[in-house]
Amino acid sequence: MSVKQVSVFLENRPGQLKRMTGVLAEKGVDMRALSLAETSEFGIARILVDDAYGAIQVLKDADFVASLTSVIVVQIPDEAGGLDHLLQYFADTNLNIEYMYAFLGGKEEKHAYMVFRVKDHRSAEAALAGKGLPLLTQEQIAEM
């Protein structure tokens, strides 16, 4: 149950992130989460949005290089030890995380959401099956 994340190439210089958010704002794309990875010259903006396919199109039309990447989004209780508890399941199955980021929110304040990029989604899903840690669908992200 993976979710499509939009990954965008950005040059690491003033105004570039603003150029991206400008395009998204103009087209009414609503962001759920944003994470930036960077080197001294360039970066990748990773975003979860209400409409991933729509966002890709508007970015490409504005001459951005962007692609869709599958990630999993896990809902955990917003409390001390919440993430630690989740990561234990990954560690138990020896699952490597390429990168992750997190966001709070939705209307359910007591929840936090962890976004993971892993090589093997199935093992991640299997590791969490029946553990009371639901994975979000694309629709749920859209409706947040």
Binding site: Q5, S7, F9, F42, R46, V65, R117
Partner: peptide, 15 residues
């Protein structure tokens, strides 16, 4: 210039 063909979400691969 970065191209769609050369772009990947994996930072390590790009570098």
């Amino acid at each position: 210039e970065m191209t769609p063909e050369m772009f990947t979400d994996n930072m390590g691969e790009i570098t």
